[in-house]
Amino acid sequence: TTFEIRVGDLRITLHNADEEEIRWAEEALRRGIHADEILRTLEERRR
């Protein structure tokens, strides 16, 4: 599944994310964390 998060002009697309990952990514985007860093962190958490 694919889920797109939008916060203002910012956007990130997550693939195969669970609800916790989606909530975490949305909050991180709101705090101004760059999408590349969010994706990198999620990848590390999945390992």
Rank of each mutant, 00 (worst) to 15 (best):
T2D: 12
E19K: 11
E21H: 02
E26S: 08
T13W: 04
T1Y: 14
T13E: 09
R46F: 04
A17F: 06
E44Q: 06
E21Q: 03
R40V: 11
T1G: 13
E44C: 01
T1E: 12
I38H: 00
I22C: 04
E20S: 15
L14A: 01
R31K: 13
L29A: 08
T2I: 12
E44P: 00
E43M: 11
R46Q: 04
N16E: 07
E19F: 07
R11E: 10
D36L: 10
A17W: 04
I38R: 00
I22Y: 08
I12P: 01
R31E: 11
F3S: 15
L42Q: 01
R45E: 06
G8W: 03
L14Y: 02
A17S: 04
E43V: 07
R30V: 10
G8Q: 04
R6N: 14
R40M: 11
E44M: 05
R45S: 11
R31T: 09
R11L: 11
T1A: 13
T2K: 11
G8F: 03
L29R: 01
R40Y: 11
W24K: 00
E19R: 09
T13R: 04
E27T: 11
R47S: 14
E21W: 02
A35Q: 11
G8S: 03
R45N: 14
E4I: 09
F3M: 12
V7C: 12
R47W: 09
R40D: 10
R30A: 09
L39A: 04
W24T: 02
I33A: 07
E37R: 06
E20G: 13
G32N: 07
E27N: 12
N16H: 07
R30Q: 12
L42K: 00
R46E: 03
R30H: 11
R6C: 04
I5R: 00
R6S: 15
I22K: 08
H15S: 09
L14Q: 00
R11P: 03
A25M: 06
L29K: 01
G32E: 03
R6A: 07
D18P: 03
H34W: 09
L39E: 07
W24I: 10
H15A: 08
F3G: 05
D18R: 08
T41Y: 12
R46C: 04
W24Q: 01
E27P: 00
T13I: 14
E21N: 02
E19Y: 12
E44Y: 04
L39F: 15
E37S: 10
E44W: 05
I22A: 15
L10S: 10
A25P: 00
E4V: 08
R11S: 15
E19S: 10
T41D: 08
L14D: 00
N16S: 06
I38M: 06
L14S: 00
E27C: 15
R46Y: 05
V7W: 10
I22E: 02
A28I: 02
V7Y: 14
R46M: 03
F3N: 14
H34C: 07
H34A: 04
F3P: 02
I5M: 06
R47Q: 15
I33L: 05
R40N: 11
G8P: 01
R46S: 03
R6D: 09
N16Q: 06
D9V: 06
R6V: 14
H34T: 12
R30K: 14
R31D: 13
T2W: 15
N16L: 04
